[in-house]
């Protein structure tokens, strides 16, 4: 038996036949919730999609979002159906878009990345969020696009689903696994709270350096992203570390 066969044999020999089965009723209940969220998201209504990740923009969505029978969603991050911050979105002849809410409004400065999609630029900005039963989470980080006229289109929003959004260290990281939108993939991005001077990811044994910007409203909060030329959007990192100005690991 060669070594690969040995590995195969060991993997199978360690299967546990005596474990209890999974809770299929619970799985199907949660699956139905996910399905409902996707259907709501399909309408393109910003507020409804944001509710899908239990985020209320500007603290108003909590009053209008569809009822949720139980606790937080399993996913901490989600793509947001592209929504512009203009006041006059193009009308559609499709389904009822559902309750209307204002799109996420940036808090503090919008951070330009220099990444271009035609005339648009990839930008990052902090938005207010309202997560039920999580008073420590009041902000999320959005990846959007800014048109030459300054119009913002939010593509992806990440926020914490536990604890405090100002806890020192890394917070939720956004991966564009669904390539939303397909022609403007979102770079891997997130934020770190602390005196980070460098943020370095590891993927396939190589180090990739993130670009950084401090949030105008709280300089402890360091927004970071990986340029698509350095890290292809959607590529999972194997690790990530932050270092201070003296190159000490934080």
């Amino acid at each position: 038996m060669n070594e690969v066969d040995e590995l195969r044999r060991a993997m199978r020999a360690t299967e546990r036949a005596d474990r209890d089965g999974l809770d299929l009723a619970g799985i199907m209940r949660e699956g139905r919730r996910v399905r409902r969220r996707r259907q709501v998201a399909g309408t393109g209504a910003v507020a409804a999609v944001v509710a899908a990740v239990l985020i209320g923009v500007g603290g108003t969505v909590a009053r209008t979002r569809p009822p949720e029978p139980t606790g937080p969603a399993p996913a901490a991050t989600a793509p947001v159906a592209a929504s512009t911050a203009t006041t006059d979105p193009s009308p559609t002849a499709t389904a009822d878009p559902g309750p209307t809410e204002p799109p996420p409004r940036p808090v503090g400065a919008v951070v330009g990345s220099g990444i271009r999609y035609g005339a648009d630029e990839r930008v990052f900005y902090v938005v207010p969020v309202d997560v039920p039963e999580l008073p420590g989470v009041t902000i999320g980080l959005a990846a959007g696009r800014r048109s030459p006229t300054g119009e913002l289109t939010t593509d992806y929003l990440v926020n914490d689903v536990a604890g405090s959004d100002r806890r020192p260290g890394f917070h939720q990281i956004g991966y564009d696994q669904q390539r939303v939108p397909a022609d403007a993939p979102v770079p891997t991005f997130g934020y770190f709270v602390g005196p980070a001077a460098r943020i370095v990811g590891t993927v396939d044994g190589r180090h990739v350096e993130a670009r950084l910007a401090r949030w105008s409203e709280d300089p402890r909060l360091v927004i970071f992203w990986f340029d698509p030329g350095v890290l292809a959007p959607g590529t999972p990192l194997d690790g990530i570390v932050a270092r201070d100005a003296r190159d000490r690991k934080l």
Partner: peptide, 27 residues
């Protein structure tokens, strides 16, 4: 579950991961 166990080395995490996969599959 066993595949997840091989990846995590932890039965509880493995069951959570398998459950997550099946939730999305059902959805």
């Amino acid at each position: 579950v066993h595949a997840a166990f091989l990846m995590t080395g932890n039965h509880h995490q493995a069951e959570d991961a398998a459950q997550t996969a099946l939730v999305r599959t059902y959805a």
